[in-house]
Design a protein around this nucleic acid. Structure first.
Lengths: 156, 156
DNA sequence: CTTGTTGCAAACTTTTTGCATACAC
DNA sequence: GTGTATGCAAAAAGTTTGCAACAAG
């Protein structure tokens, strides 16, 4: 279900290398691996990305991951959101924007299409003069289909 | 299941000391100072709370602030949200719940009444089977009335 | 008195930085 | 060759924990 040959997926892949060079930056295996890892993992912390790329290349350093994530985010290729209290998680910008739901109970992360926030987006724009950044949005709460509904795990 | 009385702000002040004792916890000057600081500062990081209480009492320790914030949050007297990328900010639960808008440009924080998210709340409930935690919600974006509209002011 | 609470210091976790070397262009 | 990126190690920043002394009830 990946529709590989639609515009964004393909064009983006070819394009980002060009973007790098256009900025005087360099295309390194580390950067390719790290972007690949972010795409595969869907949602991952810097540490998880690091672990993933290490499966391929042992030598890649954590600080390189941090630095690269910053570059990639700057290029608009990845974004991050805070899916847990103290954990930035990065995800690839594959073309379709989305925001996240995080269940305090089961910890599950769910991606939701931006249309769902459209009303809020409109309301904030009109009532508060505020333009929201949908892609960074994380909504915490509880999924009603959750195994152990609302009880127990009352810590944050 | 809240608002046992109409006015929490007043009843709450008298009440929280009772709540503490009811749990076998103790009312200490540190705890009063820290709660007071959170209320006055509106939105503050643990470090800022620490700085504030130190103005009154030099000896209060940062770890006490962390521990106390946890207790107060547990009692439902304060809540925290992530208003910046790496900074939990605490605010007092004064009775009326609200969520936050944070401008990436001017850094300003704005509190908004929960009614504004009601449509989203409903949509998530119906479409995704997800009950959102409105009080913890933080929406990032840009205020259109912002001095230097969409410029790059800082690195988030 | 009893037991929760605090201060202090040290341990931890996560992220950033300085620098010499390596490598993309 | 030139200047960007990387690896490594050490430093920061933020948060947690063990423990003895202290104090609220």
């Amino acid at each position: 279900m990946n529709a590989p040959d639609t515009d964004v997926a393909d064009g983006g892949l070819d394009d980002w290398r060009a973007q790098l060079r256009a900025r005087g930056l360099r295309l390194t295996p580390q950067r390719e691996l790290i972007l690949g890892a972010v795409e595969q993992l869907r949602h991952a912390t810097p540490d998880q990305v690091h672990a993933r790329v290490r499966e391929t290349s042992e030598a890649i350093n954590l600080s390189t991951v941090y630095r690269t994530l910053e570059v990639l985010e700057d290029l608009g290729l990845v974004r991050h959101a805070h899916l847990a209290d103290r954990a930035p998680t990065y995800h690839a910008v594959t073309g379709d924007p989305h925001f996240h739901l995080v269940c305090r109970n089961c910890g599950r992360t769910q991606s939701v299409a931006p249309e769902t926030v459209a009303p809020l987006q409109r309301a904030l724009h009109e009532q508060e003069g505020f333009e929201m950044d949908v892609g960074h949005l994380t909504v915490f709460g509880w999924c009603t289909t959750c195994p152990s509904d609302h009880e127990e795990h009352t810590h944050d």
